[in-house]
Amino acid sequence: MKWVLLVLRIKRRKGCEMMQVLCPWCGVRDEDEFTYGGPAHITRPTSGGDAPQQDVSDEKWASYLYEKDNVKGIARERWVHVHGCGQWFNLARDTVSHKIHCVYKMGEPCPVLTPEGDPKNRND
């Protein structure tokens, strides 16, 4: 009789790190130092603080869990410099060209960009 423990082993691809990511704390590093953490600026529905959430409707909760934009073009994403400083930050990445247009710290406002990814003056 042999026990087999189910093991989730995280395999890092050694072959090819491709993009470069600008960590706001460490500077430009290869992509494989980072982990993608899903779309940014998703607000978690709460009933305020630690209050129970029963008044958050099924629809609202389902939308939070499952209805993510799958953008063709500039997407806002959350990344972490996991094999580095360990810090989370946000960035705007073109999902077609993989070009990263801007990187901003967690908590900083989301910069407004033109569809081409250039910074836009809010007064325009």
Binding site: P45, S47, G49, D50, A51, P52, Q53, Q54, D58, W61
Partner: peptide, 14 residues
């Protein structure tokens, strides 16, 4: 447990 915690709301899905 009445206070909110991660995943709690999902325990009330059908």
């Amino acid at each position: 447990k009445t206070a909110d915690y991660i995943g709690k709301r999902s325990l009330y899905r059908s």
